[in-house]
Write a protein that binds this DNA or RNA. Structure first.
Lengths: 256, 256
DNA sequence: CGGGCACTTGAGGACGTTCAAGGAGGGTGG
DNA sequence: CCACCCTCCTTGAACGTCCTCAAGTGCCCG
């Protein structure tokens, strides 16, 4: 049966540095240095002109979080929404029996809060120091009615979120531990600002990885060790990864 | 840690027949008997008045499929979207290595095609005889700009889809085979028209269940057998389930 | 130097898969 | 109406993967 790629990945041996290095933790005032907002990697503000950005500016409030703090808590009201400006965060759902599932890792430009539900049924926790723009949901939605580009961007964000969830379902349903780890590495390579095959600085710990991939810390650790022993990756230190055989890792990660 | 329910399930020993019995395979002309469109379980047409429904009517085309046919194929253009009127279908993604993951089961009132992407990265296959309303995506979206209720409904559909995907991620990441089976049973009890604890007629076969829950057919079969031996369910025949201990099954299925 | 924390490693076991065989039901043809 | 076949489902045995529990290592920070 002929099938389509769910996500096309095509890597040479080169090191694709796919993204700008914004959101590297520097904390300039968001409306003095607009590079964040104007960057076309930022889904929310893409293709908007200066006047439109100014309108958005007036609605936003900058929020700064240290490591391991909640941007919003599970069950919190959805009247506030967020756009990550720098740092990394995780969307997590913790069930009544205490199990934790990470639903996504968030990076600069990622948006949180596109839902018409009254409460978040997940929490967003910072993994590193995080800065984020905060909006009143209704204000932003009202503005979106006036700025078609903004409305389209919100729609695109929703599509992308759904598309990523489909990938994760496929990953958890069909792939073994090694493939899941490889998927995460490729995912980080594509999304983590500053990440190159030579050096991926993991913003999350092993427990976070485990909770994202539906594994235990031990299995994550063992899988990483095996990838290392097989010569596919190198570990300069525990939270820094060098991909040695990008083709092989990308191949294992493939979920097309 | 205090957490919110992702989905609240509260069952007594009674048999909640939660839905109307529309979509039971009867094939009346869709615009003679409007019960389908007017049913408030149908997310797309909820709260719309007769005049608005008439506008939608003019855009739609009825499509009838036998069992095991594709409503739309993986990689097909997204210019056509669908609203299931009767029967059951499955959204599936088949990867290049031949693995199949079912992303959702579809029932009457479910909508397919909310995406701004050009191609479906999944296929929709009928499990039973299926009737569905077909729309040109752009026509429907244009109409949504004129009918606020329709636009809100489309937004709600998107939210619900995402919410279900989050549940599935949690299920696949954190739950064992038995819990996954129980989840499916409760899910069907809530969504499958005509389903009661006394009698759930499974529209899908064991392979479909396996591909939905990230298991093998054998494991699905063994899990069902164990639930039967433990006295939680009964199997009048292979594709018909009676839930004997609803509290226990719902408890195992819980994803809060 | 010592304590704490995150990560790794090891041994054993549980759960799910794989491979293989055995029913059970439905349809077709004799 | 029965025999046969085909498909789907179930069951069995052996294996592999991942989990659990436990100990050990390395690193950061006082």
């Amino acid at each position: 049966m002929a099938v389509s790629p769910m996500r096309k990945v095509s890597y040479g041996r080169t090191n694709p540095n796919l993204q700008n290095n914004w959101g590297n933790g520097s904390l300039c005032h968001p409306f003095i240095d607009r590079s964040n907002m104007l960057d076309n990697n930022c889904a929310l503000f893409r293709d908007m002109n200066t006047s439109e950005l100014h309108q958005v500016e007036e609605l936003s409030k900058l929020k700064v979080l240290a490591k391991q703090q909640y941007l919003c808590a599970q069950m919190a009201s959805t009247d506030q929404v967020y756009n990550i400006a720098s740092g990394a965060a995780a969307i997590e759902h913790i069930s009544s029996d205490g199990n934790r599932q990470i639903l996504a890792f968030l990076f600069p430009g990622d948006f949180v809060g596109l839902s018409t539900q009254k409460m978040y049924d997940y929490g967003v926790k910072s993994l590193t120091k995080v800065t984020a723009y905060q909006f009143h949901r209704n204000q932003l939605l009202r503005l979106a009615e006036e700025i078609p580009t903004l409305e389209a961007n919100l729609q695109n964000i929703q599509d992308r979120v759904l598309s990523r969830m489909l990938e994760q379902v496929y990953l958890l349903g069909q792939k073994n531990a090694h493939a899941r780890i490889c998927y995460l590495l490729i995912h980080l390579l594509e999304r983590l600002p500053g990440a190159t095959a030579d050096r991926i600085e993991l913003p999350m710990n092993r427990q976070d990885i485990a909770d994202y991939l539906g594994l235990t810390v031990e299995t994550v650790s063992r899988s990483i060790t095996k990838l290392k022993n097989d010569g596919l990756i190198k570990l300069p230190c525990a939270n820094s990864v060098t991909i040695l055989d990008l083709d092989e890792v990308a191949d294992l990660a493939n979920i097309d």
